[in-house]
Amino acid sequence: MPDTTAIRTITLVNPQGFHARPAHRFMQLASGFQADVQIIKGNETINGKSILDLLTLGAQNGTTLTLQARGDDAQAAVDALAQLVENGFGEMNEQ
């Protein structure tokens, strides 16, 4: 089986950062793909399909993260998840 890997740098644009609701939305979207999804922050790599892991990032607005997926639908997973993050998880108008 071909081991497809997709990778992209993403920046958190929503004011509140990677708090509980974004973590939930990210996990839900990521879980719909067969590919393994990981986020790399500094020297730490976490599972993008685990809310607990996502919350350990403590990533604030403006933080740059590396999004990585491995599996047949890796590219689709990275594209969809990057779009979610770069659209501010749909909460750009919240204070």
């Binding site: 708090h19 607990l52 892991d53 350990t56 990032l57 403590g58 604030q60």
Partner: peptide, 8 residues
């Protein structure tokens, strides 16, 4: 965020 980070 830091509190959530610590707890998780």
């Amino acid at each position: 965020l830091r509190a959530l980070e610590n707890i998780s």
